[in-house]
Structure formats: C-alpha cells, structure tokens
Simulated assay, not measured.
Amino acid sequence: MAEQVTIFFYGLFMDPEALEAKGLRPREVRQAYVERFTLRLGKRAALAASRGGRVYGTIMRLTHAEIDHLYSDPSVAAYRPEPVLAQLADGSGELALCFNLPTPPDEASSNPEYATALQAVAR
C-alpha cells in the first residue's frame, strides 16, 4: 500500500465527496482547526497568518500520488505545502500538510460564489 500523508483542507477540498469525484480516496476524515491563521477568499480560499485567528476544516489521509494529482490542476498549481498542527475535537493535535498560496489574497478580496459553495461544504 502506498504511503499516506495527513492533509489539512480548509476550502472546497475539505469535502471528501468532491475528492472522490476526482478519483481520490480520502481516508480517516476528521474535523479539525488550525490556530494563528485566518481565511481569505480570492479566486479560491487561502490562509493568512493571524495572531488570534482560527480556521476550521478537515484533516484526511491521501497518498502522495493523490496529492500530486489534486494539485496538478492549473487552478491550484500555485499552492505550496507547509506543515501545520491541526487541532482535533478530542483536544489532541496532529501534524499535517496544508497547501496554501505563498501570497494570500488581500483582506478586500472576495468571491461570493466560492463563499456560498464553501458555506454549503462546511454545513
């Protein structure tokens, strides 16, 4: 079996059904959050450092090949992996990779269509 990596997703990729529709097999999907970030919306979601921030999402396990496939799409090709400590509901933490833009959208950016889709996934 191929090695699996824990990923923290905070945008539309946090929906395991959407990933399955792309041919991926997300495993061990759990709700989580990361501290010291805030969510910014541009064309897609991104994280920005924020001393008192918290961003909710999911962690799951994917293989390296699945991650490469997912981030080969031109719409997310600029995202880069960085390590985060994802906090779980039981109070534990788990190291995860989080793909983020090197330069997040500015605070004035918005994307109402993406925000509506993200709210539906978050429910």
Rank of each mutant, 00 (worst) to 15 (best):
R30Q: 15
L62F: 01
G53D: 03
D68M: 08
Y79W: 08
N100W: 00
Q87C: 13
V5A: 04
A122H: 05
G57P: 00
G57V: 00
Y114L: 11
A65G: 04
E94F: 01
G91R: 11
E82S: 09
A45H: 01
A77K: 15
R27S: 13
L41G: 00
R25P: 00
M60Y: 01
E3V: 06
P112M: 11
E94L: 14
E82C: 03
E3W: 02
G11H: 02
A2R: 11
L101A: 11
G91D: 11
H69V: 02
K43G: 06
S72M: 04
G91I: 13
A2P: 07
G52M: 00
L95E: 14
I67R: 02
R36N: 13
E94K: 14
F13R: 01
L12A: 14
S72F: 00
I67E: 02
S75P: 01
G11Y: 01
Y10W: 13
A78R: 09
F9Q: 02
V55L: 05
L70W: 10
D73W: 07
L70Q: 08
K43C: 03
E28V: 10
R54M: 08
L39E: 04
R30H: 09
H64C: 07
P83F: 10
D106L: 04
L118Y: 03
S92H: 09
A48Y: 03
L95H: 13
A21H: 14
A120S: 12
G57W: 02
R40N: 10
L85Y: 06
C98W: 04
Y10V: 06
V76I: 15
L118G: 05
S92P: 05
V84T: 07
A18D: 06
R44N: 13
L85E: 08
L47Q: 03
V29P: 10
P105G: 07
A115S: 11
A89T: 09
A89S: 10
L70T: 07
D90R: 15
D106I: 00
P16G: 11
N111W: 08
V84N: 04
R123F: 06
S92D: 10
R80S: 04
L19M: 15
F13S: 08
E113S: 13
L12K: 10
L24R: 05
R61W: 01
A96M: 07
Q119F: 01
P112T: 11
R27D: 12
I7P: 01
P81G: 08
P74C: 04
Y33C: 13
R123Q: 12
T6R: 15
R30D: 06
E66R: 00
R123H: 13
Q87K: 15
R123N: 09
